[in-house]
Design a protein around this nucleic acid. Structure first.
Lengths: 95, 95
DNA sequence: ACACTAAGAGTGTCTTAGCCT
DNA sequence: AGGCTAAGACACTCTTAGTGT
């Protein structure tokens, strides 16, 4: 196993989906998540292409910017992803 | 950042919680997930102690053994974890 | 049998320095 | 500007070998 590609990890496609929904560039999302401006574009790009997987603290920062729970990135089915968002939106805005 | 301890990643405690619930030893869970018997105990132990984080394919195999979605391991709140399990138990018959 | 650990081997991510559109 | 990539630097996980319960 000498590969360095992530098999079927949903993080890549969820990240792209959420970033585009927020109207951010790869670079601007990375900077907003606290990543060094010089590497923000490269790192977010690698995550979206599925080449690398972000560690937990990085993903937590990204999740905060995009207003989703970290678990949402790991939802392997679209219906589960929606289910998680439904939970999320029922506790941020008070009524 | 020279540390090799996972900060607040929920995977460690969720894994232990689910394994104990299933009544499996660290070694038996690892073997059931397809990990080499010679390293199963060590690896699962590292995951539960928060020393290492399993990669996606390993976590997928563990999730299958324990009957939970991968996303559940990343639920940072107990109420979100319960919410995810509620979804999981309602999809045996097709939708 | 079960839980756990150190340390070298092995595998992955991060940074630098770019190209292409 | 925005998307994307290779390759060395660097950090992490995995395996081996072993301790203690």
């Amino acid at each position: 196993m000498g590969a360095h590609e992530s098999p079927n990890c949903p993080v890549a496609r969820r990240l792209k989906e959420a970033r585009l929904g927020a109207g951010l560039s790869q670079r601007r999302l990375g900077i907003a998540a606290g990543i060094d401006p010089g590497t923000a574009s490269t790192r977010i790009n690698r995550y979206e292409r599925g080449a690398h997987i972000p560690d937990y603290s990085t993903l937590t920062a990204i999740a905060h910017v995009l207003n989703v729970p970290v678990a949402w990135f790991y939802a392997d089915r679209d219906d589960l992803a929606s289910w998680i968002l439904a939970f999320d939106s029922s506790l941020s805005p008070r009524n």
